[in-house]
Design a binder for these strands. Structure first.
Lengths: 330, 330
DNA sequence: CTGTTAGCGCGTTCAT
DNA sequence: ATGAACGCGCTAACAG
């Protein structure tokens, strides 16, 4: 059953719909007296504003779209949750768009979101850089953990370089010399930065970069397992692994287990993200913590500010990371 | 920049807006000739229909709301993903509403969704039964994994009773006599059913129900850990644990590790859900598999059918479960 | 086959 | 302080 409308409320109160509208929006120009009367009727009839009509009129929908590669990955889910926790109290609803890393889907989603009249879009990392056509020209947009070519888009990300650096240095300080890095085969910005941190740490400690130790995979547990198995059967010697993702680390651990290689005695491992699986793996995984909550919160905050035209948004926010030590390193 | 409108297209093509609308909606009553002409202009000007206006007119938004207790829990995330994968190709967008088990939030979300004009709602299990006021009276609604008091609402769920039964029976067949069950302290229907399965299995095998072995907790890893620690320090003897959730099982495993209790030698464990953490815990967790994908897919399918008034929807769909054996049982 | 007209529910001038 | 009237962009009668 459709809701009661502003016009009917007006009738019932013996005023015009304009007045009711003003009262509803606190836009002044009405007497306290009629306000009371109207509000009472509104309560009595359980009036609720038709947001669709309002959107049509105002061109604002109080709705934002979040584009995410895989909601099933706790890392992304955490960020989405943080976005929600910030946005909902501010009156916004959230469209969730799961791309499964599919480029075409991503484009479709953006078109769809625009058509549905969202006020803004938040992108979570996925395919490489955001192609021009994909990013909306008309809509406020902020990216998380992904550095689009487009220099005009706001980016919120972790300090991936430092993350790669401290992880690698920790391994070195524990006496490792041959440190494998497992990273995304795609050249996406966060991975590139972590890799740069890795190289910088090696260099600082006078360890030459061995190309045999850098392995590129599709980001997936089993791919990591296969990659490490391959490494082992190829006879490549190594005493540590820096996995650019916790899930990649888990995959590596599986391979090591299969070959009865002891962790951390024979090989030490460090992951990235600090999602809960890191805490419950065997052995519990040392990893680089990203502040997922802040990542989402800040992105949402910036986006809403952009929508409200408040701040002249700063460009790149980068959040600090930290090492949480567990049992895959001494 | 706002989009070009149907009216302008009509002008440019020298026809009326009604004709353009008909062409856009394939509703017939126009010549092939004008169709071509109009479509070309539409392409040239990159026209895109204003969904908000359309919604206002048609009272359909091609939008559904999904209410979920914790998107961060892989179990729910999997279901949400399945819902998405079914709905998006059918033209629907999805509002995600994370309640964090908060009853008040849930009510707010429903109000909000109604106001925003969603065409239907899917509930995922959370607080006990859905209170009357919470469930929308006007909107098609389907529940997953949760049996609301309201008998008119469609429910899609796993065969929780069987799940509880086969898990418990497996434990019994492996020689366990004192089987702890860890379950949600709230009396929610899926848990109640699993518990019933547990009791039935015990009874079938002539094992008396020992109230000391049924522990109720808030569903949370650490709560499970504490509960098991408590059990141990209290000196309660047990040789198996049936945890009504994988996360609960992980919590139990942690407690056992702390006390150097060997799994599965001294205590066997079975979880529920089969989320990925079960695969990567130590030891890998035997668990009851729920078909998350199907759960979401079927729910979405039923909901969309309801929206399209197609089928006279069946009431209760219950999906089979299965035991996946890993290393926490022999 | 096509055009005219009339709203969907709301916010907003411009009057008074 | 309040009302009349218009229009956001679209679809759905009804006419022809």
């Amino acid at each position: 059953m459709s809701n009661i409308t502003i016009k009917k409320i007006a009738e019932l109160a013996g005023v015009s719909s304009a007045t009711v509208s003003r009262i509803l929006n606190n836009t002044g120009r009405y007497s306290e007296e009629t306000k009371e009367r109207v509000l009472e009727i509104i309560r009595d009839y359980n009036y609720r504003t038709n947001v669709v009509a309002k959107s049509l009129r105002t061109n604002k929908s109080k709705t934002i779209g979040v584009i995410v590669p895989d909601i099933t990955n706790e890392f992304f889910a955490n960020i989405v949750l943080a976005i929600e926790n910030y946005s909902v109290p501010n009156g916004y609803s959230i469209f969730i768009c799961n791309t499964s890393e599919d480029h075409e889907k991503e484009k479709m989603f953006v078109r769809d979101l625009e058509a549905k009249g969202v006020d803004g879009i938040i992108y979570l990392s996925g395919n490489k850089q955001i192609p021009e056509q994909t990013t909306s020209k008309h809509l406020p947009t902020v990216c998380i953990d992904r550095n689009p070519g487009n220099k005009e888009i706001v980016v919120v990300e972790s300090d991936n370089f430092s993350g790669g650096f401290i992880a690698t240095e920790e391994l070195i300080q524990q006496g490792c010399k041959r440190i494998v890095i497992i990273k995304d085969e795609r050249d996406v910005s966060p991975m590139a930065e972590r890799y740069r941190g890795y190289r910088e740490a090696l260099q600082k400690h006078g360890i030459p970069l061995d190309e045999n130790l850098v392995v590129n995979v599709k980001v997936d547990v089993h791919e990591a397992t296969k990659a490490v198995q391959h490494l082992i059967s190829r006879g490549t010697a190594f005493d540590a692994i820096f996995a650019c993702t916790d899930w990649l680390a888990i995959g590596a651990i599986n391979a090591l287990h299969q070959h009865q290689i002891l962790i951390p005695d024979e090989v030490k491992i460090i992951g990235f993200d600090n999602i809960s699986v890191a805490q419950h793996s065997y052995p519990p995984l040392t990893t680089v913590e990203q502040d997922k909550t802040k990542l989402g919160e800040i992105a949402a905050q910036i986006l809403l500010d952009m929508i409200d035209q408040k701040k002249p948004q700063k460009q790149n926010i980068v959040l600090p990371v930290s090492l949480v030590k567990r049992n895959t390193t001494l």
